Amino acid sequence: MSILDKQYPTNVYRLILITAAAIWGLGFVIGKSAITTVGATWFTAIRFFGAGIVLLIILFPHIKRSFCRKTLKAGMIIGVATFLGFWTQFLGLGMTTPSKNAFLSACYCLTVPFIWWVVSRRRPPAKVFISAAICTAGIGMVSLTEGFSISLGDGISILSAFLYGAEIVIIGLVMRDNDILTTTVVQQFTSGILALLLALTTQPMPTAAQVITPEFIGAMAYVAVLSAAFGAVAQNTAQAHVSPSEAGLLCSLESVFCALFSVAFFGEVLTPRMALGFALIFASVVATQLGDKGGSTATNSSPEESADDGPAATTSRESSEPVKRNRGRITR
Rank of each mutant, 00 (worst) to 15 (best):
I171G: 11
C107Y: 00
F278Q: 05
I115T: 04
I168A: 14
N326H: 12
L194K: 08
W87F: 14
A81Y: 06
F86K: 05
A166C: 08
A312V: 02
G231R: 00
L280S: 08
T36S: 15
P9L: 10
Q7R: 11
I170E: 09
A102M: 06
V128I: 15
E318C: 02
L55T: 00
E146L: 00
V233I: 14
A40R: 02
G218L: 02
T190H: 13
P311S: 09
I23D: 01
E246M: 07
Q188N: 15
L290V: 15
A264Q: 09
K293Q: 09
V269E: 13
E268Y: 07
A34F: 02
T97K: 10
L56W: 02
P322T: 04
E321G: 06
D5M: 09
I171M: 14
I170A: 15
E305G: 04
R329Y: 11
T19C: 12
N236C: 11
A22H: 03
M175N: 14
A20D: 06
G27I: 08
F43W: 03
A240K: 13
V142F: 02
E146M: 01
I78Q: 04
F28M: 04
A275E: 06
G267N: 13
T82S: 03
L4Q: 13
G231I: 01
R325K: 13
P303N: 10
A229D: 02
